[in-house]
Amino acid sequence: MSKLGQAKRIIFLKTADGQLFEVDEPVAMEFEIVKSFFDENEDAADDTVVPLPNVSAEPLAGIIEFCKAHVEFRANGAAGKDEVKKFNAEYIKEKSNEQLKELILAANYLNIKEMLDFLTETIANRLKNKSVEYVRAFFGIENDFTPQEEEAVRKEYEWAFEGVDED
């Protein structure tokens, strides 16, 4: 009840590279790791700074942008389905693979299911219906099989290559 008259609560987060972020409570509570921090330390002072030793400032800023928008979408009701898709598409359009990787690692560490689902879905969509060579190039995966080993794996899952035009 003391919360009623108060301004909305701000959560302080500190990144690995020492930057301090001030985040609105509902947005910060999207991060499972922050939520459980406060669940476990119920009497934590309002100005407690939550350390995030595995996240640096750049991906965190991106994550806050995403979660903030999604918290708003939810508050507005499911009505914004198209809006959400549009926002997500815009959001990911500007990201390089390096940024995408950083976001995934950070979202994974902070344990934000919705965002992680979205990011892995994005990657999966880029891989759908693509040849092995494409996926290797896309991910920059170095093929450490010998030709014989690769042939053996291909043979084992022959059915998965049916109808795929590798060349």
């Binding site: 995934i104 689902d117 891989l127 759908k128 995966i141 099989f145 059915w159």
Partner: peptide, 24 residues
């Protein structure tokens, strides 16, 4: 690994199985 598995689980069975050839 768990993130890669998460990505794979969004693919069809054939696409998923084909990832086995990417690298060891």
């Amino acid at each position: 690994d768990d993130i890669l598995v998460n990505v794979i689980s969004r693919l069809t069975v054939n696409e998923a199985a084909r990832t086995s050839v990417l690298a060891s």
